[in-house]
């Protein structure tokens, strides 16, 4: 069982330096730092093109104190699968540049790089059984290119490619359930978490790195620019997303679902979360009440299904 202890964590080196160019209030760098605190120095990181790769590197600077590779947008899982395979090949022949029994391999991508363009590469890498962790940091749109709709964008959200206008009210589809898609790969560990629940996040990173084989984490990542909220509120919004069941925390270990955080029985209405964000502003216009009702219906349905899977129903 993975034990997470603030005292030990606080002594670990911060492996993502400050001075990177994430927006003030971006929760992405917080997530990466939390992951790296648990992963430690013996880690090779790959980043897909997107905000987090762009803000942590710009030649001749890098925020990464561990080895880091970026090659393209849709291929981070494949790229890291190559590095992980090379590790095994070199180790077998006693040719590693520095001898190590184990190195962690972590690939990360945004929702665009994971739910959408990189899904094939991710699926392939997971199916092949590489000993790697893939982290999707889900800020619910293509932020780096200017807040376009992705397969992760929630119903009703305004984005630059599916804007709210005179006749349309933002995205007209609910997000796809990537976490369940990853569960369907029958890999040893899949989980969903947020930066507010740091203990939950660290525990899941630990477990994911400890399993023998592929692991996947989906982490909700509030984006101040794309969601439109006060930069001080990012972590708070990640908390609320869980409280209103929009982003439940659970893990699936060898196919067994488990809820890792039990929200209160009288869950926060989704409205509370929506109204904090400019991207949902139009939903509060008279005549759009049914859209909020629809989001609430979807959240409740999804939660019901999840609780059943977790044996909590």
């Amino acid at each position: 069982m993975a034990v997470v202890n603030l005292q030990t964590l606080s002594k670990n080196e911060d492996l993502l330096t400050g001075g990177h160019r994430a927006c003030a209030g971006c929760t992405g760098s917080n997530i990466l730092r939390q992951i790296m605190l648990t992963a430690g120095q013996d880690t090779v990181v790959g980043g897909a093109t997107g905000c987090m790769e762009v803000v942590t590197t710009i030649f001749p600077y890098t925020a990464w104190k561990t080895p880091f590779i970026h090659s393209a947008f849709e291929n981070c899982a494949a790229t890291i699968s190559g590095a992980e395979t090379a590790f095994r090949a070199l180790k077998k022949r006693g040719e590693l540049p520095v001898p190590r029994e184990k190195i962690n391999f972590i690939a990360f991508g945004g929702d665009g790089g994971t739910y959408d363009i990189g899904l094939q590469s991710l699926s392939g890498a997971m199916e092949r059984g590489h000993n790697m962790l893939y982290v999707c940091y889900d800020n619910e749109a293509y932020m780096n290119t200017g807040i376009q709709r992705s397969g992760a964008t929630p119903f009703g959200a305004h984005t630059s490619t599916a804007p709210a206008g005179k006749v349309k009210q933002g995205k007209d589809r609910h997000r796809k359930d990537l976490t369940k898609i990853m569960v369907a790969h029958n890999i040893p560990y899949v989980a969903q978490t947020t930066p507010f629940h740091w203990k939950d996040l660290q525990m899941k990173v630990r477990k994911a790195l400890d399993v023998d084989g592929p692991a996947f984490l989906n982490i909700l990542m509030p984006c101040t620019v794309g969601w439109g909220f006060d930069p001080a509120l990012g972590i708070e919004l990640s908390k609320m997303a869980t409280e209103c069941n929009f982003w439940p925390l659970f893990e699936v270990e060898n196919g067994e679902y488990k809820l890792t955080y039990k929200p209160k029985a009288d869950r926060t209405p989704i409205e509370e979360w929506l109204k904090q964000q400019v991207r949902f502003k139009h939903l509060f216009k008279p005549g759009n009440e049914h859209l909020i009702v629809e989001i609430q219906r979807w959240v409740d349905d999804e939660q019901r299904k999840l609780l059943k899977l977790c044996g909590e129903a």
Partner: peptide, 19 residues
């Protein structure tokens, strides 16, 4: 791999280790 795009991507990841 599941595609040539991934073949070259994996080759990049592998070759970047020195393999």
């Amino acid at each position: 791999v599941e595609s040539e795009h991934s073949a070259m991507s994996a080759a990049i990841g592998a070759a970047a280790t020195g393999a």
